[in-house]
Write a protein that binds this DNA or RNA. Structure first.
Lengths: 134, 134
DNA sequence: GTACCTGCAAAACCTTTGCAGCATC
DNA sequence: GATGCTGCAAAGGTTTTGCAGGTAC
């Protein structure tokens, strides 16, 4: 959390209550949160303030946006390069993060070599039906 | 293309001009298309008709919906289980499909074993900056 | 003839923005 | 005190839907 606030300051953001609450919520969330979920938890300000707070954090790279098929766009701290891998139930909508290290780093390196792309990051989702919904 | 039409028929869909055009466009597209792109090409009917056509095709599993960060949701034929891997330029927005076989099948099998999930499919995007935009 | 598809128009959603006043640094 | 943040309200953009008439089978 310290690190994020430092980054905010360096980028000229004011450390407001909304900003701190946003970071706290995302830090303690097991899975990414939607804008609506954030707005629901942060009641001390207007929804457009939460929206703008999230935009600023995204812009300076402190949080990242993820895009799920049915669940829509969600946000998470951008701390770790890994942990962009998710397992999602198509029936109940549950989203869980995979903790297993991504097997994609090799492929990523090969891709950069082969295609000339730079700065590759990835987003990976597995969709299926969880045991409870089978 | 025959296969898709058969599936449509089996699922009680009428084989209309809109439906055929939608399938043709997606079949010949190198990369997934957005609703707007489809509507732009299919001028013989109202945009809501294209929308509903796409929804029907998605519902019966003939096409699939993909979700990109900046490019939004797009659609593609659901023919091949592989080829759900994309390489996207964050600068110019270009989307290309990876032809290399996905290294995820092993992981997929292990995940099903470990988590009890069934029927796993996946969606994988690499984001970076392409050689032209560097 | 029946069940499905279409056009039109409006509703519903979610995201985004302008502007005047307020808070952080 | 300057610069960035906030509230409110409204605009924008896309996705969805109702209903009456038309079309594939």
């Amino acid at each position: 959390m310290k690190k994020q606030l430092l980054l905010c300051r360096e980028n000229g953001l004011r450390i407001t209550s909304t900003l701190k609450q946003t970071l706290n919520l995302l830090e303690n969330a097991a899975v990414p949160m939607s804008l609506a979920e954030l707005e629901e938890k942060i009641t001390s300000c207007n929804q457009s303030t939460v929206y703008r707070s999230v935009q600023r954090l995204k812009k300076i790279g402190v949080i990242k946006q993820l895009n799920f098929a049915e669940q829509g766009t969600k946000f998470a701290l951008a701390t770790r390069e890994d942990n962009d891998d998710f397992l999602i139930c198509k029936a109940c909508g549950k989203v869980e993060a995979l903790d297993s290290p991504s097997p994609l780093n090799d492929l990523k390196n090969r891709l950069m070599q082969k295609t000339g792309f730079r700065g590759l990051s990835h987003e990976l989702e597995f969709y299926g039906v969880c045991p409870q919904c089978v």
